[in-house]
Design a protein around this nucleic acid. Structure first.
Lengths: 191, 191, 191, 191
DNA sequence: TATGAATGAGGATTCATTCAT
DNA sequence: GATGAATGAATCCTCATTCAT
């Protein structure tokens, strides 16, 4: 196994452990065990626990972002795109709830982590904002709306609904009505 | 100072400390110092750190819920209610970001905390859902919408926008365009 | 037991353990055990292992310095003073070899420790230099000698001889010919 | 490069690293890097870190001893010999302070190292003692003096003075008054 | 009742040593 | 022979919790 592969192995192990017990709850020993390496080995690849977590977040955000672009491209219109986003986000949230939350719950992180996360996540925002602008150009979306607000309603609405269904009602990602939430966001609440 | 007052003092101190350094970062000693009591005293009022945090969350959720009812009542129509919700949530998020997040980032919490939080937050949901239903009755809101989805879009959209503005663009709560986000949610994105 | 007494207890325990196994070999746990306290207790009194060692050195240097003044005062003339110095130094070296050496073997210490030690030991030098100057005034010691050199010959000669006898020939402090080495230093080697 | 040459390379690297950071502070990895070999290679030449250090001390003591004989031979009389000893020792101390100290600060060493060092250093003592005895024979040095004491005063006096000047007053070896300290040792302190 | 000194389990990190290549 | 990636025992330090006062 090459050096880079082992790095990824450790990152995946970290993600898995952290997804179960959270950042602080994750012990280096457990991550090592999960990765099938010795405790000391992790330190050959990462400077510290914090550095490992930071890289893990970056790695996952990158993965999310890459899949996001693909899933958005597969939607034919805005409804399809948001539905796909919902499905994709639900699957991701289901697998790595902690990670998704990390972008929100980073108050207690060291400053460098916060900065990193902001810049990584702003890419995700940007990607969706681009879709909104495209929708405006083809007159699918009203041009009097602030694109930033549109993005917030899309991401926030989808996430909130998905979160509720997964975590509180114990739905599986497949059982969620992705089309319904997408429509609600697009058509608004008023008559 | 009565027993109940001191309890509240400690809860407030816990909230303050945790808002700054997060759940795991909050040390009992610091909370005690903030509350102006001895370390041991906290254990006279709460069984453990976890118990303290749990109660703190309950206390704050209750506070939030009480203010929420008031703020919603002050809105004349749905637009006013959502705008008020946005303003109120922004102020709260600004003061106690960690707490707001706690309802999301509770993956790593002990099971009892999670359960508690779910039931506390479901009250908030319920309160807003009631408003949505009222809006349907008076035909302000379309009745073909799933009220649960409407709630998700309202809460999610407002929170997401507020969060972005406060945390990434460093707005103050007052600088946020609460009316704009409320309108966007209500009218949807389509022509 | 008062706070200050326990501090001293820990310092003494540290000295004892370190005397046996050296700075790096001394484990905090062993020092705690020797002091009859828990591991964590040490950290109530000292910030870190290094801080403990630093204070320990200071404490001992202070003790040495105090005894030194007394032992020098008890010598009637220069011969008596140097003999006393030799006896006193031998007893101290016998009990706390590591400490005496620490003033020499501090190359690897953190910078703040070195600085501290230099200033502490310069007091010892100063004390002996004062005696040399007094000896010059009463014309017991030749005034054409650099007092700094005289101090070096006294301290160096006495220590070297004591060290050799204690460590290599396994003498007890009492078996050493303190008068002989003092005479040799005072009268020099030439006819 | 022959086997023996590489051995010496490693020994020199060990000396260099240790001179900077002390015995415990020296990491095998750094020594390997300094020697320009792999970490594992050191273990082809030495059984363990302790064994390496032990050999390093032996090697250096041998070097010191060889230079010592030469430098003593170059002194015409006792004054010249001690002056030369002072100059030589100062240069050595300046370059390898840790090593010189090792002969003193070996309390914490494993037993076998101590034994080795004692026997190595006793050679140095012996060499100087021989000079003292020769000085007695030609009636340059008083014969009523214990040669062992004379040696102690010479070595101790010279070292103490050199150490003070180098380490505390930040002199270079050349700036030290080697003749002065030699005279002081030889003529003693009394009128 | 209130306190804070004492505790020690727990966890991050280091580094001498091994061994497959 | 030479290497350096992998290892885990060892150790410093933290902090929730206890309990004597």
């Amino acid at each position: 196994m090459g050096k880079e592969e082992k790095r990824i192995e450790i990152l995946k192990a970290a993600l898995k452990v952290i997804s179960g017990v959270g950042f602080e709850g994750a012990k280096m020993e457990d991550i090592a065990k999960e990765a099938g390496v010795g405790k000391g080995t992790i330190y050959e690849y990462f400077d510290s626990k914090n550095a490992l977590l930071l890289e893990m977040i970056r790695y996952c955000t990158k993965c999310f972002q890459e899949g996001l672009i693909k899933t958005l491209a597969e939607g034919e219109d805005m409804l399809g795109k948001i539905r796909n986003l919902s499905m994709y986000g639900a699957a991701f949230l289901n697998a790595h709830a902690v990670l998704m939350n990390s972008h929100i719950a980073h108050q207690a992180m060291p400053e460098d982590m916060k900065t990193q996360m902001k810049s990584d996540w702003s890419l995700v925002y940007k990607t969706i904002e681009d879709e909104v602008r495209k929708g405006m150009e083809i007159q699918e979306i009203r041009s009097d709306i602030d694109p930033e607000m549109a993005v917030a309603v899309i991401i926030g609405g989808v996430n909130q609904y998905t979160f509720k269904k997964l975590m509180e009602d114990n739905f599986t990602p497949q059982e969620i009505d992705h089309t319904g939430i997408a429509k609600t966001i697009l058509t608004g609440l008023l008559y």
